[in-house]
């Protein structure tokens, strides 16, 4: 477990602002991108504040302040979650995945590669959130009994992520391509293991 020192001193003297009001610092212990972390934060902080300002995980973005745009989307125990309206203390002991954890060993995730190659990210600001929703879609797809990549499912999975640049067209294409790739790979794997068995 990493004990992370605060990188931002913002909360240290906030008790001065309203001395009459209760204010507590807590240690939030959670798994972030597979690593256990313990971070001191004010008890009323959101997960997004914790990620961005305490852990330096700047990939999750703040766009709308209050859960309307999806730029702050992370996976909480695998489910797409708006970190800007989730209390950090509420996710004690749970697994958080951010865009920083999407690739493996410095290699971009297939989604990231497809997004980059197909122009699915223009300004890139909504993209981390879109990628996390897309990753949740891929997880669901891979775990379904009869996985089929459908445009309508992709659009529905991204329904909580606003993009202002692309008109979504190239985002759909990129997710479709990554999903197809991943299904083909797992099918190939399955075929290989069947071959091995026989």
């Amino acid at each position: 477990m990493t004990e992370t020192a605060p990188v931002d001193s913002t909360f240290l003297d906030t008790t001065a602002a309203e001395p009459t009001r209760a204010r507590r610092l807590v240690i939030c212990r959670l798994q972030v991108n597979g690593e256990g972390v313990a971070v001191v934060a004010p008890v009323h902080w959101t997960l997004l504040e914790l990620l961005r300002y305490q852990l330096g995980l700047i990939g999750s973005k703040q766009g709308c302040d209050k859960g309307d745009c999806g730029a702050c989307t992370v996976l909480l125990d695998g489910k797409p979650t708006l970190s800007c309206i989730t209390l950090a203390v509420a996710v004690q002991g749970r697994c958080v995945e951010t865009v920083e954890g999407l690739g493996v060993g410095g290699e971009p995730h297939p989604l990231q590669r497809e997004f980059a190659e197909r122009g699915a990210a223009q300004c890139g600001f909504c993209t981390p959130g879109v990628l996390m929703s897309a990753a949740a879609y891929l997880d669901e797809l891979s775990s379904s009994a009869e996985p089929v990549v459908r445009q309508a499912d992709i659009a529905a999975a991204l329904g909580g992520n606003l993009c202002r640049c692309t008109g979504y067209t190239k985002i759909f294409e990129a997710v479709h391509a990554a999903a197809t790739q991943i299904l083909q790979r797992s099918k190939a794997l399955a075929d290989t293991s069947t071959d091995d068995a026989s």
């Binding site: 009001r21 507590r24 004010p42 008890v43 009323h44 959101t46 203390v89």
Partner: peptide, 9 residues
């Protein structure tokens, strides 16, 4: 950004 006012949890 909009910050939450302080409260206990």
């Amino acid at each position: 950004m909009l910050r939450l006012p302080p409260f206990d949890v």
